[in-house]
Design a protein around this nucleic acid. Sequence first.
DNA 1: AACATGCACAACCGCACACAT
DNA 2: AATGTGTGCGGTTGTGCATGT
Length: 336
Amino acid sequence: MGRAPCCDKASVKKGPWSPEEDDKLKSYIQQHGTGGNWIALPHKIGLKRCGKSCRLRWLNYLRPNIKHGGFSEEEDRVICSLYVSIGSRWSIIAAQLPGRTDNDIKNYWNTRLKKKLLGRRRDSNPNPNPNPNSNYNHNPNNGALTSSALERLQLHMHLQALRSPSCFSFNNNNNNNKPNNYYDPPGRNDPHILQTLTGEEATVTAAVSPSMKLQPDQNAIMLEKMEGSLGFSSSSSSAAACSNYIINMEAEVLLHDMVCGGKESMGNDCFPEELDCLKEQEQGISWPWGSGNSSSNINGFDDVKSAASSWDSASVFVQHDSVQLQAGYFGIEYNL
DNA sequence: AACATGCACAACCGCACACAT
DNA sequence: AATGTGTGCGGTTGTGCATGT
């Protein structure tokens, strides 16, 4: 049995608000506040509207200091950065932009900013996986990443390309000691977005076995998948240059997809096979929140796998000589 | 001028969560 | 602990306007 409706749908008015309705709602709330009960509010002021509709109208349109349209470059940048980091959590993004509402940002993203940044739609791609025999199959729906994950992935790559134009090239002239195809995920060298948003972050660091590596065939599978999903093809040299970058990127999106997009429908069984190396290498990992840590009962790979279904965010960074897992509840992050 | 199409925005819907009882 | 209710959120739809044919 479903829950009772919040109002009598037959007797409430729907559709655009008239100026008279706006005036009634605005003047009442400015004088009396909402009274803590949106459902009762329309009856008090004689509006034939659903309480939810009144709330939405107030929050998105009538509330003081609301800005509409005219997003600045800086706002674009903030939206873009936050979308890459946390996805479509519009209310959180809106909280970082004074005067903007989640609905406004959501509309702006869907109608303009996404196109502006990505330049094309990719859901017309009829065959995201060019090799049906590939054992890369973390998503049981069709083997492809979700559109949200792909959008973030594309955006991620776009921003990375802007930030570091040489990352797909062997012509490495920078003087740090990283290879030029090394991928620095946002949030590792930059202040992490969760830290920025919440001001609190718990970090636990553990030693990672240096023998933990992806095998060459795994590289090839990853790259093949990425080419199909993103619609680019690579020459052999650029493929080699890109492989580490792509593996890192793919692993991050892949796990995020699993945790955020699949935790309801797929449970823990969708934990990507590529990360099974974690289990194989379990003996080589020092699990920092083991029995000695009373605040956590995560003692090894199976516990990580189990806990992943309830994490708010997760990222896996697979490099040629290490695996790093960042995951946790919102605002609290563990580094493995 | 008439119609089709695309776009931007407002509003709605249904679900999940928090809280009260 | 179980249930009911209100709120918040993200996804989706509806509508009016602009532009193209």
